[in-house]
Amino acid sequence: MKRGSAAWGLGCAVLLAVPGVALAQSKPVGAAEGARPSAPAKPPSAPKSKAGAPNKPPARTEAPSAPRFVWPSLRVLEQVDASEVVEAGGVPVVLRAVVVKDSVQDLVQRFADAFRAGGLHVPPGNEQPQLASGAAMLTAVDMYRGLTFTVILQPQDGGVTLVYLGEANHTLRREPSAEGDVATLPPGAHQVLRVNDEGSRTMSFLAPMSASEVDAFYAQVLGREGWRRAEGDASSYTRASEELRVMHEPAEGGLRSVVLILRGRARAAQGSSVP
């Protein structure tokens, strides 16, 4: 299994690109929603009433009596990255990545049950982002405390699963700034997400471009800014003591999902040494 710094940065960007702000700022509810999921990539759906309409828990205004949610215990085989606090879209987020000895389907059920048992609101399936490559994603909200909890589950060789855990505190959000962006955004770029920590910066967005157009755009833009493409790797650029990765994949509606990851060379080398 190859899990280097690029994979970690990409996972972080995807993990944080969830509709958590609106959910966390909405009206508190008294109980979590969500039926048991039946497939790895399908998050829980809202339970139905006898008449077929979704049941919504009654609204509450008093402070919660339940303790703060704690992630369920996992059978960890490898810790890819220790817990760290980053800023994503102006929101502070605690991130962690581990490899566990469980299937994606079992883990989806375990996290869904843990979210409900913890008194969190689990949005219905049509409000949960869907991922490609057999990965599953599930988000739950503590509406009293303004927190969102997101887990991404990526199947790996050997029947194990790479698990990304993210906890965002929306009550501490500050307006993000485009100053000091990783690189120039192409025309038409939208849904821009900026993630900053002590040793790296990540920017992700959607753009109405093809794969060749993304590559050509950044080859030209980065070349003017003094970046040199790494030999044998069209997605990697270097400049002085920095490394910039340009990764992209198809998205819905003919768009391209692009992730840019900027790291210091020393940190990048350290991250890529993870087996």
Rank of each mutant, 00 (worst) to 15 (best):
A266I: 09
G271L: 15
S73C: 07
E175M: 14
K101C: 07
L172F: 04
Y144V: 05
V122T: 12
V94L: 10
K56Q: 13
Q156H: 04
H170P: 07
M203F: 13
W8E: 08
Q156W: 01
K42F: 11
A219S: 14
Y164I: 01
K56H: 14
V246D: 14
T161I: 01
M143Q: 13
G125P: 08
T171Q: 13
D233G: 01
P123V: 05
L16D: 15
T139E: 06
P58G: 09
S257R: 11
Q270V: 13
A178S: 14
W227I: 07
D233L: 03
R174Q: 09
L10Y: 07
A268G: 14
Y237R: 08
S83T: 09
W8H: 04
L95E: 15
H170T: 10
G52C: 11
P92M: 00
G180R: 06
G158N: 03
S200I: 15
S236H: 10
A211C: 05
A6P: 02
S241M: 12
P124V: 09
V192T: 09
L147V: 10
R174V: 11
R75E: 15
E198Y: 09
T148Q: 03
P67A: 13
G166I: 07
P58S: 06
R60N: 00
K50C: 12
R173Q: 14
V94C: 06
V21A: 15
G223S: 12
Q156P: 05
Q270N: 12
S200T: 15
A112Q: 01
G30L: 00
D181L: 14
N126V: 13
S235T: 12
A51F: 12
S49Y: 08
F149Q: 05
Q270A: 15
P43T: 12
Q130M: 04
L262D: 06
L162A: 10
Y164Q: 06
R96W: 00
A112R: 00
D102H: 02
G226R: 08
M1E: 13
L165S: 11
K27D: 14
A140Q: 04
E231W: 01
G232S: 04
A117T: 06
Y164P: 00
N55W: 12
S200Q: 15
E242H: 08
V100C: 01
L10T: 11
P37S: 07
R96A: 02
L262V: 02
R265G: 08
H248I: 03
L206R: 11
E84P: 04
Q270G: 07
V100E: 01
Q109W: 02
D233H: 01
L262I: 00
V86Y: 06
D197N: 11
Q220V: 09
P43F: 05
A183S: 11
